[in-house]
Nucleic acid binder design. Structure first.
Lengths: 108, 108
DNA sequence: CCGCAGTACTGCGCATTGAGCGGTACCGTC
DNA sequence: GACGGTACCGCTCAATGCGCAGTACTGCGG
Protein backbone atom coordinates (compact mmCIF):
# COMPACT_ATOMS: atom_id res chain seq x y z
CA UNK A 1 0.00 0.00 0.00
CA UNK A 2 1.08 3.45 -0.81
CA UNK A 3 0.86 5.89 2.03
CA UNK A 4 0.03 8.61 -0.47
CA UNK A 5 -3.43 7.12 -0.85
CA UNK A 6 -3.91 7.07 2.88
CA UNK A 7 -3.10 10.73 2.99
CA UNK A 8 -6.12 11.52 0.89
CA UNK A 9 -8.75 12.95 3.10
CA UNK A 10 -6.39 13.34 5.99
CA UNK A 11 -4.12 16.06 4.76
CA UNK A 12 -6.85 18.59 5.43
CA UNK A 13 -7.14 17.65 9.06
CA UNK A 14 -3.41 17.39 9.47
CA UNK A 15 -2.84 20.84 8.05
CA UNK A 16 -5.65 22.27 10.13
CA UNK A 17 -4.19 20.68 13.24
CA UNK A 18 -0.74 22.03 12.56
CA UNK A 19 -2.00 25.53 11.90
CA UNK A 20 -4.20 25.47 14.95
CA UNK A 21 -1.13 25.01 17.11
CA UNK A 22 0.43 28.07 15.59
CA UNK A 23 0.00 30.23 12.52
CA UNK A 24 2.17 28.99 9.74
CA UNK A 25 3.16 29.59 6.17
CA UNK A 26 3.32 26.87 3.55
CA UNK A 27 6.97 26.04 3.64
CA UNK A 28 6.84 25.88 7.39
CA UNK A 29 3.71 23.73 7.52
CA UNK A 30 5.41 21.27 5.22
CA UNK A 31 8.34 21.05 7.59
CA UNK A 32 6.12 20.60 10.60
CA UNK A 33 4.08 17.87 8.95
CA UNK A 34 7.21 16.04 7.97
CA UNK A 35 8.61 16.40 11.45
CA UNK A 36 5.38 14.96 12.80
CA UNK A 37 5.84 11.81 10.77
CA UNK A 38 4.21 12.59 7.46
CA UNK A 39 7.55 12.42 5.76
CA UNK A 40 6.31 11.90 2.26
CA UNK A 41 4.02 14.87 1.82
CA UNK A 42 4.82 16.81 -1.28
CA UNK A 43 5.10 20.54 -0.85
CA UNK A 44 2.67 21.19 -3.66
CA UNK A 45 0.06 19.09 -1.88
CA UNK A 46 0.34 21.22 1.21
CA UNK A 47 0.20 24.50 -0.66
CA UNK A 48 -2.82 23.23 -2.49
CA UNK A 49 -4.50 22.10 0.69
CA UNK A 50 -3.81 25.42 2.34
CA UNK A 51 -5.41 27.21 -0.58
CA UNK A 52 -8.41 24.90 -0.56
CA UNK A 53 -8.89 25.39 3.13
CA UNK A 54 -8.56 29.13 2.73
CA UNK A 55 -11.12 29.18 -0.06
CA UNK A 56 -13.42 27.07 2.07
CA UNK A 57 -13.24 29.76 4.71
CA UNK A 58 -11.49 27.66 7.31
CA UNK A 59 -8.36 29.75 7.32
CA UNK A 60 -7.45 33.40 7.09
CA UNK A 61 -4.18 34.58 5.71
CA UNK A 62 -1.82 37.49 5.89
CA UNK A 63 1.42 38.19 4.14
CA UNK A 64 4.52 38.98 6.07
CA UNK A 65 7.48 40.38 4.19
CA UNK A 66 10.70 38.72 5.17
CA UNK A 67 14.18 40.21 5.20
CA UNK A 68 15.67 36.82 4.67
CA UNK A 69 13.87 35.62 1.59
CA UNK A 70 10.60 35.98 -0.25
CA UNK A 71 7.47 37.08 1.54
CA UNK A 72 5.65 34.53 3.64
CA UNK A 73 1.95 33.92 3.36
CA UNK A 74 0.83 33.00 6.83
CA UNK A 75 -2.35 31.10 7.44
CA UNK A 76 -4.30 31.19 10.67
CA UNK A 77 -7.21 29.05 11.71
CA UNK A 78 -10.55 30.68 12.47
CA UNK A 79 -13.75 29.50 14.09
CA UNK A 80 -15.00 27.74 11.04
CA UNK A 81 -11.68 26.01 10.70
CA UNK A 82 -11.76 24.94 14.30
CA UNK A 83 -15.21 23.49 13.90
CA UNK A 84 -14.19 21.71 10.71
CA UNK A 85 -11.18 20.35 12.52
CA UNK A 86 -13.33 19.12 15.35
CA UNK A 87 -15.77 17.36 13.07
CA UNK A 88 -13.03 15.88 10.99
CA UNK A 89 -11.25 14.67 14.07
CA UNK A 90 -14.35 12.82 15.18
CA UNK A 91 -14.83 11.36 11.72
CA UNK A 92 -11.23 10.28 11.75
CA UNK A 93 -11.41 8.60 15.14
CA UNK A 94 -14.54 6.71 14.21
CA UNK A 95 -13.08 5.67 10.94
CA UNK A 96 -9.75 4.65 12.43
CA UNK A 97 -11.49 2.59 15.08
CA UNK A 98 -13.53 0.83 12.43
CA UNK A 99 -10.46 -0.02 10.42
CA UNK A 100 -8.62 -1.15 13.52
CA UNK A 101 -11.55 -3.36 14.28
CA UNK A 102 -11.38 -4.91 10.87
CA UNK A 103 -7.67 -5.49 10.96
CA UNK A 104 -7.30 -6.15 14.61
CA UNK A 105 -9.01 -9.48 15.25
CA UNK A 106 -5.99 -11.29 13.90
CA UNK A 107 -3.03 -8.99 13.76
CA UNK A 108 -3.82 -7.51 17.14
CA UNK B 1 -14.53 15.78 5.78
CA UNK B 2 -16.00 13.12 3.66
CA UNK B 3 -15.32 9.59 4.78
CA UNK B 4 -15.12 8.54 1.17
CA UNK B 5 -11.76 10.22 0.92
CA UNK B 6 -10.56 8.43 4.01
CA UNK B 7 -11.51 5.16 2.41
CA UNK B 8 -8.99 5.67 -0.31
CA UNK B 9 -6.07 3.44 0.29
CA UNK B 10 -7.89 1.55 3.00
CA UNK B 11 -10.51 -0.31 1.02
CA UNK B 12 -7.82 -2.67 -0.18
CA UNK B 13 -6.81 -3.65 3.31
CA UNK B 14 -10.37 -3.81 4.50
CA UNK B 15 -11.37 -6.14 1.69
CA UNK B 16 -8.30 -8.25 2.22
CA UNK B 17 -9.05 -8.50 5.92
CA UNK B 18 -12.65 -9.50 5.34
CA UNK B 19 -11.72 -12.14 2.81
CA UNK B 20 -8.98 -13.47 5.01
CA UNK B 21 -11.56 -14.30 7.65
CA UNK B 22 -13.53 -16.29 5.15
CA UNK B 23 -13.81 -16.63 1.40
CA UNK B 24 -16.38 -14.28 0.06
CA UNK B 25 -18.08 -13.09 -3.07
CA UNK B 26 -18.60 -9.45 -3.95
CA UNK B 27 -22.10 -8.96 -2.75
CA UNK B 28 -21.26 -10.66 0.50
CA UNK B 29 -18.06 -8.70 1.06
CA UNK B 30 -20.03 -5.51 0.65
CA UNK B 31 -22.44 -6.63 3.35
CA UNK B 32 -19.67 -7.62 5.69
CA UNK B 33 -17.85 -4.35 5.23
CA UNK B 34 -21.02 -2.41 5.91
CA UNK B 35 -21.73 -4.51 8.95
CA UNK B 36 -18.24 -3.77 10.19
CA UNK B 37 -18.91 -0.06 10.11
CA UNK B 38 -17.98 0.98 6.59
CA UNK B 39 -21.57 1.77 5.83
CA UNK B 40 -20.98 4.01 2.87
CA UNK B 41 -18.97 1.75 0.61
CA UNK B 42 -20.44 1.51 -2.82
CA UNK B 43 -20.82 -1.95 -4.26
CA UNK B 44 -19.01 -0.96 -7.42
CA UNK B 45 -16.03 0.14 -5.35
CA UNK B 46 -15.81 -3.25 -3.72
CA UNK B 47 -16.17 -5.16 -6.96
CA UNK B 48 -13.48 -3.00 -8.45
CA UNK B 49 -11.21 -3.51 -5.50
CA UNK B 50 -11.74 -7.24 -5.60
CA UNK B 51 -10.80 -7.29 -9.26
CA UNK B 52 -7.76 -5.10 -8.67
CA UNK B 53 -6.60 -7.35 -5.87
CA UNK B 54 -7.19 -10.41 -8.01
CA UNK B 55 -5.23 -8.95 -10.88
CA UNK B 56 -2.46 -8.06 -8.48
CA UNK B 57 -2.26 -11.71 -7.54
CA UNK B 58 -3.38 -11.26 -3.97
CA UNK B 59 -6.56 -13.23 -4.39
CA UNK B 60 -7.68 -16.34 -6.21
CA UNK B 61 -11.22 -16.84 -7.32
CA UNK B 62 -13.66 -19.59 -8.16
CA UNK B 63 -17.20 -19.50 -9.34
CA UNK B 64 -19.91 -21.31 -7.49
CA UNK B 65 -23.25 -21.76 -9.20
CA UNK B 66 -26.12 -21.06 -6.92
CA UNK B 67 -29.57 -22.57 -6.98
CA UNK B 68 -31.00 -19.50 -5.42
CA UNK B 69 -29.75 -16.77 -7.67
CA UNK B 70 -26.98 -15.96 -10.10
CA UNK B 71 -23.58 -17.59 -9.78
CA UNK B 72 -21.26 -16.30 -7.13
CA UNK B 73 -17.68 -15.41 -7.80
CA UNK B 74 -15.85 -16.25 -4.64
CA UNK B 75 -12.51 -14.75 -3.79
CA UNK B 76 -9.98 -16.32 -1.47
CA UNK B 77 -6.82 -14.82 -0.08
CA UNK B 78 -3.50 -16.45 -0.88
CA UNK B 79 0.02 -16.08 0.45
CA UNK B 80 0.76 -12.99 -1.50
CA UNK B 81 -2.46 -11.47 -0.29
CA UNK B 82 -1.64 -12.33 3.27
CA UNK B 83 1.74 -10.69 2.98
CA UNK B 84 0.23 -7.62 1.35
CA UNK B 85 -2.30 -7.48 4.14
CA UNK B 86 0.40 -7.73 6.73
CA UNK B 87 2.45 -4.96 5.21
CA UNK B 88 -0.56 -2.77 4.70
CA UNK B 89 -1.65 -3.33 8.25
CA UNK B 90 1.70 -2.11 9.51
CA UNK B 91 1.58 0.88 7.22
CA UNK B 92 -1.89 1.63 8.45
CA UNK B 93 -0.98 1.39 12.12
CA UNK B 94 2.00 3.65 11.67
CA UNK B 95 -0.01 6.12 9.70
CA UNK B 96 -2.93 6.07 12.10
CA UNK B 97 -0.61 6.63 15.04
CA UNK B 98 0.97 9.57 13.29
CA UNK B 99 -2.37 11.17 12.59
CA UNK B 100 -3.55 10.51 16.12
CA UNK B 101 -0.38 12.18 17.31
CA UNK B 102 -1.13 15.23 15.23
CA UNK B 103 -4.73 15.49 16.31
CA UNK B 104 -4.33 14.22 19.80
CA UNK B 105 -2.40 16.91 21.67
CA UNK B 106 -5.56 18.93 22.07
CA UNK B 107 -8.54 16.72 21.42
CA UNK B 108 -7.02 13.87 23.37
C1' DC C 1 29.32 40.71 -10.72
C1' DC C 2 27.33 36.42 -11.67
C1' DG C 3 25.61 32.19 -10.46
C1' DC C 4 24.09 29.08 -7.14
C1' DA C 5 21.76 27.48 -3.04
C1' DG C 6 18.04 28.08 0.09
C1' DT C 7 13.56 29.95 0.97
C1' DA C 8 8.78 30.50 -0.57
C1' DC C 9 4.91 30.25 -3.52
C1' DT C 10 2.22 28.81 -7.74
C1' DG C 11 0.44 26.41 -11.96
C1' DC C 12 -0.21 22.45 -14.84
C1' DG C 13 -1.00 17.87 -15.95
C1' DC C 14 -1.12 13.04 -14.34
C1' DA C 15 -2.50 8.87 -11.75
C1' DT C 16 -5.17 6.59 -8.42
C1' DT C 17 -9.34 5.31 -6.78
C1' DG C 18 -14.06 5.53 -4.69
C1' DA C 19 -18.82 6.74 -6.25
C1' DG C 20 -22.96 6.84 -9.13
C1' DC C 21 -25.66 5.04 -12.61
C1' DG C 22 -27.20 1.87 -15.77
C1' DG C 23 -27.25 -2.69 -17.69
C1' DT C 24 -27.33 -7.93 -17.65
C1' DA C 25 -28.83 -12.12 -15.67
C1' DC C 26 -30.84 -15.55 -12.59
C1' DC C 27 -34.29 -17.13 -9.18
C1' DG C 28 -38.82 -17.60 -6.71
C1' DT C 29 -43.27 -15.68 -5.87
C1' DC C 30 -47.58 -13.68 -6.55
C1' DG D 1 -44.90 -12.87 -16.56
C1' DA D 2 -43.79 -8.77 -14.05
C1' DC D 3 -41.35 -7.77 -9.89
C1' DG D 4 -38.09 -7.77 -6.16
C1' DG D 5 -33.89 -9.60 -4.42
C1' DT D 6 -29.40 -11.44 -5.50
C1' DA D 7 -25.07 -10.89 -8.05
C1' DC D 8 -21.86 -8.94 -11.22
C1' DC D 9 -19.84 -5.57 -14.42
C1' DG D 10 -18.63 -1.28 -17.29
C1' DC D 11 -18.42 3.56 -17.99
C1' DT D 12 -17.69 8.12 -16.55
C1' DC D 13 -16.91 11.52 -13.12
C1' DA D 14 -14.74 13.87 -9.20
C1' DA D 15 -11.47 14.47 -5.61
C1' DT D 16 -6.95 14.93 -4.40
C1' DG D 17 -1.95 13.97 -3.72
C1' DC D 18 2.30 14.13 -6.64
C1' DG D 19 5.97 15.55 -9.76
C1' DC D 20 7.90 19.06 -12.24
C1' DA D 21 8.68 23.44 -13.93
C1' DG D 22 8.65 28.26 -13.22
C1' DT D 23 8.97 32.78 -10.59
C1' DA D 24 11.16 35.54 -7.13
C1' DC D 25 13.93 37.23 -3.39
C1' DT D 26 18.27 36.99 -0.31
C1' DG D 27 22.95 36.11 0.68
C1' DC D 28 27.28 33.99 -0.24
C1' DG D 29 31.23 32.12 -2.83
C1' DG D 30 34.17 32.51 -6.80
Amino acid sequence: MDASQLLKGVLDVAVLAVVRDEDGYGYDVVRRLRAAGLEDVGDASVYGTLRRLFQAGALTSYVVPSDEGPHRKYYAINDRGRSVLEDSTKTWRTFADTVDGLLGPVAA
